[in-house]
């Protein structure tokens, strides 16, 4: 069971949180200018890296705020957590 350091509440256990997918995920627009390929990429394609991934989690049973996590998908080590409003964290390839 993972533990996360919520930027607002501190360290809590995994059942309090909900996963929200990779970030950054930029919503293409306006719709009439978005190609089929770009829209498909937004809907379906993700990096799914082996190693460090930037993703967002929601503290669903706490402050109900979204925040950004850098996690190692192999070891589950949590490298950092930051607010949505903070600059996107660096992830070394």
């Amino acid at each position: 069971m993972l533990q996360f350091e919520c930027p607002y509440c501190g360290r809590r256990d995994e059942p309090e949180f909900r996963w929200g997918g990779e970030v950054p995920l930029v919503r293409p627009g306006p719709p009439q200018l978005v190609s089929e390929g770009d829209w498909a990429a937004y809907l379906f394609f993700r990096d799914n890296p082996k190693g460090l991934v930037r993703e967002r989690w929601l503290h669903a049973l706490g402050c109900r705020q979204w925040f950004v996590v850098v996690r190692n998908t192999v070891t589950h080590e949590i490298c950092s957590t930051s607010r949505i409003s903070d600059p996107t964290p660096e992830v070394r390839a």
Binding site: G20, R27, R56, L58, A60, R64, Q65, W66, I84
Partner: peptide
Amino acid sequence: FATFEDLIQCE
């Protein structure tokens, strides 16, 4: 409601 919060906070 969760969708509303998600879009307001993140999008």
